[in-house]
């Protein structure tokens, strides 16, 4: 699974800390998601897509 969290975050002029506070997780979690080291829950994925005003499909790209 790939994601465009970093791209959307920079486009929205948000720091990792800002985004972490907005979705209620730690900065380390945002770093892990951006580096594809951690796959977020569906709940967190929805929160991220809501903040970036996009869909989950655009934010997370499924690669079997």
């Amino acid at each position: 699974m790939k994601n465009k969290v970093k791209l959307f975050r920079t486009q929205n002029n948000l720091t990792q800390q800002d985004l972490a506070i907005k979705v209620g997780v730690s900065r380390q979690t945002i770093i892990a998601i951006e580096n594809n080291k951690y796959l977020p829950s569906i709940n967190l994925a929805f929160k991220l897509s809501k903040i970036f005003k996009t869909t989950i499909e655009k934010l997370f790209i499924y690669q079997p």
Binding site: S26, T29, A32, L44
Partner: peptide, 9 residues
């Protein structure tokens, strides 16, 4: 640093 206990934790 573990002040936030989130789903990754």
């Amino acid at each position: 640093n573990k002040k936030i206990y989130d789903e990754r934790e």
